[in-house]
Simulated scan of single mutants.
Amino acid sequence: MALRVYTGLRPYRGYLKTSHNALKQSIPAAIVASRVRDIETSARGAQTQEAKNTRSKYKLEKAAGKSRYEVAPEQRIATATAGVPALVRLGTAAFVSDNLKNFRNRPKKPIELYEFEGCPFCRKVREACTLLDIDVLFCPCPKGGPTWRPKAVQLSGKSQFPYMVDPNTRQQMGESDDIINYLYNEYGDGNVPLLLKLGPLTAISNTLALLPRINRGISYRKSKLPKKPVDLWAYEASPFCKLAREVFVELEIPHIYHSVARNSPKRQELIDKWDVFQVPYIEDPNTGVAMFETPQIIEYLEKTYAV
């Protein structure tokens, strides 16, 4: 007869099986079960404390008179056009890589990317970051932008995007294919997915994907720069996230992009914070505001940072 102790904690899924002989060898099942409960209680306490910290630090702005996931009538066309990239790219960047658990290591600091929303080569790198489930500090470089575009040109010596800086390894490079190969070798398993390494076909499909919103996320609009980057939880294939990020780019707002595609373990972070998962979601350390809902986020960014 065997005694099985089950846990509900994700990192400790499965069961601990202790045989009758082991019990005789002074490994009391009660002690084992007690230890499992201690671990589970401790982890839950940490999650609760994290939620308390977030709720004490940020004021969650809620949209009035609107159900979750409801698309406002005035947003339907924009949402439909923003959804085209996911269709053209066959759902690339909707999910994290199936091989995520075998990836070598995780960057301790966010990768820095100088890029802009309307660039097909930049989008290809963003897809790779989503598949790899790594966080990125985006330094938006819209045309005419006075801050990040000149800095990128200074770093690279030419006006070509995207440009990557990895503070973890001190590596810097341009060229989308080189960046993707580097990221997969450093933070993946070295195997770049087929849809990211088809050369001209990848570039053409990403260009076609961006055509319905070709004039958005490209040109700078006068704004005031926040002192700290805004935190954004999103993922590349989501049309709702794309609409919000277009404004981030046009207003040249630096943002730490917490990539949370489907099957990302980081989705639990949002559930821990507010007992719900929904993206896009922002936390602005400059104002103490936290917010879901694309229209409200766009309105907030316009009121707070547009000039």
Results as ranks from 00 to 15, higher is better:
Leu3Ala: 14
Gly199Ala: 05
Leu90Pro: 07
Leu225Pro: 06
Gln49Lys: 12
Lys101Cys: 11
Trp148Tyr: 10
Arg68Thr: 13
Gln278Trp: 13
Val165Trp: 02
Lys151Gln: 10
Pro28Glu: 15
Ala72Phe: 13
Ala29Gln: 14
Leu196Asp: 02
Thr202Gly: 01
Arg35Gly: 11
Phe292Met: 09
Leu23Ile: 13
Asn286His: 03
Leu16His: 11
Ala30Gln: 14
Asn99Trp: 10
Glu74Val: 10
Thr207Phe: 12
Gly8Ser: 09
Ala30Asn: 14
Leu9Ser: 09
Val96Asp: 02
Leu3His: 15
Tyr300Arg: 07
His255Phe: 14
Thr147Cys: 03
Glu283Phe: 10
His255Ala: 04
Gly14Cys: 04
Val289Thr: 06
Asn99Ala: 13
Thr130Gln: 07
Gln268Leu: 11
Gly174Trp: 00
Gly188Leu: 07
Phe240Lys: 08
Ala152Asp: 02
Thr304His: 04
Gln25Phe: 11
Lys17Met: 15
Leu201Tyr: 09
Asp133Val: 05
Lys151Tyr: 07
Ser156Met: 05
Asn185Pro: 10
Leu243Arg: 11
Tyr220Val: 00
Ser264Arg: 04
Ala43Phe: 11
Lys242Val: 13
Ile111His: 00
Thr79Phe: 15
Leu243Asp: 08
Gln75Pro: 10
Val84Ser: 02
Ile298Met: 08
Val88Ala: 01
Pro254Met: 04
Leu195Thr: 13
Pro167Asp: 00
Pro142Val: 00
Leu60Tyr: 05
Ser56Cys: 08
Pro110Tyr: 03
Lys57Val: 05
Leu211Arg: 12
Glu236Asp: 14
Leu3Phe: 14
Arg89Ser: 03
Cys141Tyr: 01
Ala237His: 00
Pro107Ala: 01
Glu61Lys: 13
Ser159Tyr: 07
Ala234Leu: 10
Phe292Leu: 12
His258Arg: 08
Gly190Lys: 06
Ile31Lys: 12
Glu293Phe: 07
Ser26Gln: 14
Cys119Trp: 02
Gly190Met: 06
Ala33Thr: 12
Phe116Pro: 03
Leu132Pro: 04
His255Lys: 05
Arg221Trp: 05
Lys108Val: 05
Gly8Ile: 05
Arg104Cys: 10
Glu236Phe: 12
Lys266Gln: 05
Ala51Gln: 08
Glu70Ile: 12
Pro120Cys: 06
Ser34Ile: 11
Arg262Ser: 09
Ser19Thr: 15
Arg4Asp: 13
Ala78Tyr: 14
Thr202Cys: 00
Lys228Phe: 01
Asn286Cys: 03
Ser238Phe: 04
Asp133Pro: 01
Lys227Arg: 09
Ile39Met: 12
Ala29Val: 15
Ile31Arg: 11
Asn53Met: 12
Thr7Cys: 10
Gly14Pro: 06
Pro85Asp: 04
Tyr69Gly: 14
Ala82Gly: 03
Leu210Phe: 03
Val247Thr: 09
Glu250Trp: 00
Pro193Phe: 06
Gly8Met: 05
Ser97Trp: 08
Lys124Leu: 15
Thr169Ser: 10
Lys52Trp: 10
